Computed example of a mutant assay.
Amino acid sequence: MNEREFLENYDPRAFEPLAVTVDVVTLTIREGRLKVLLVERGEPPFAGRRALPGGFVRDDDLDNAARRELAEETGLLPRVHLEQLASFGDPGRDPRMRVVSVAYLAFGPSLADPVAGGDAATALWADVDAAGPLAFDHDRILAAGLERARSKLEYTPLATAFVGDEFTISELRSVYAAVWGEDLHAGNFHRKVLSVPGFVESTGATTERSSQRGGPRARLYRAGDARILHPALLRPAREEEVR
């Protein structure tokens, strides 16, 4: 059978229905804590349950569908890097039909308060450690997004986007602590940051006040020109793994 004959005899009813959705893990830091953007579903299935913003792909491509759903359900269209995270296709993940979700990660500073819209009853920023349980398999998607964000801080200078143009090493450490979810030894962190070529560079200035009573004023730094951190700034647990 040639291709023309195949198309003439093709019957789509011979195949199970399949839909594609997008779900977006949007992370930011507020008041020193890592937050995730969630909506409360206003319609079944899982009405009243928290979920990640998302929905069905229509006549747009995947990237635009992710931006559209984020804007429709939360009122946010962050001007941040939006990257494809992973695909999730467990046959039982959606009670309506077979649905494959393409998940995205958005991670940016100074994101606004959300405003619910579309089929979302409410939208809110929630602490990542108190976000679940979420609808569908969104706990699993959130976990994947957290791991991606935490890894990006190991290998890229992304953390410098969450501090001012000039910052102290202590302020940078607070970003890592919030995203990694663990306290970091101040001296060890300081030494590691300064050992990575191009990560940060000194401004030659210091803060107006000392960080501790009677102590010296902290030095100010700015982001360097590195795009990849080498050596990587590994999480304490990961350092133990590679030893």
Rank of each mutant, 00 (worst) to 15 (best):
A144L: 12
E240Y: 14
V102W: 00
L7E: 15
L85C: 05
V39C: 05
G215V: 01
F189L: 10
A120Q: 10
T168Y: 00
R79H: 08
R67I: 12
R148L: 14
T203N: 02
P109T: 01
G204F: 13
G181N: 00
S110T: 13
L27W: 02
A71P: 09
S110V: 10
G54L: 07
G32F: 06
R243W: 14
D61Q: 12
G118R: 13
E241K: 10
R173K: 10
R93P: 00
R140Y: 07
N2R: 11
L85G: 03
S101E: 09
D94W: 09
K152L: 15
D60F: 04
G118L: 14
R4E: 15
W180H: 11
G55P: 00
A19Y: 11
F46C: 13
E154D: 05
V175G: 06
R58P: 08
L77E: 05
E31G: 08
A144T: 05
V102R: 02
H185V: 13
L52W: 03
E171Q: 12
G164N: 13
E239A: 11
G187A: 13
L172I: 00
L76T: 06
S195Y: 07
S87I: 10
D129T: 01
E208G: 06
R140Q: 12
D90C: 10
R222V: 06
L146N: 02
S110F: 11
L172Y: 02
G132R: 13
L34N: 03
G198A: 07
D90W: 03
D119P: 04
R41D: 07
E40D: 07
R49T: 08
W125T: 08
V36N: 02
P53Y: 03
V24I: 14
F167A: 09
I169Q: 02
R30D: 10
N2W: 02
A116N: 12
M97L: 13
G204Y: 12
D137F: 11
R58H: 14
R235H: 01
A103D: 08
R50H: 05
H230L: 14
R93V: 03
D127C: 03
V163H: 09
R79G: 04
A237N: 05
W125R: 05
E16I: 00
D11E: 15
S211Q: 09
Y10N: 09
R235N: 00
L34V: 02
T122W: 06
G132F: 11
L76H: 05
G118I: 10
S210G: 15
V100L: 09
D165R: 14
A178P: 01
T28F: 09
L134P: 05
D127S: 04
E72M: 11
V242W: 06
A19F: 11
S202Y: 10
A159L: 08
S87D: 15
Q212N: 12
V99G: 07
Y10F: 15
P133R: 12
R227W: 13
A205H: 14
R4H: 15
L153Q: 03
P91V: 15
A112S: 13
Q84D: 03
T160N: 06
P197S: 02
A177M: 08
E3N: 11
Y104A: 03
A149G: 05
V99W: 13
P44W: 01
V99D: 10
N64L: 15
F162G: 02
A103Q: 09
F88Y: 11
G32S: 05
V179W: 01
L70S: 04
A106P: 02
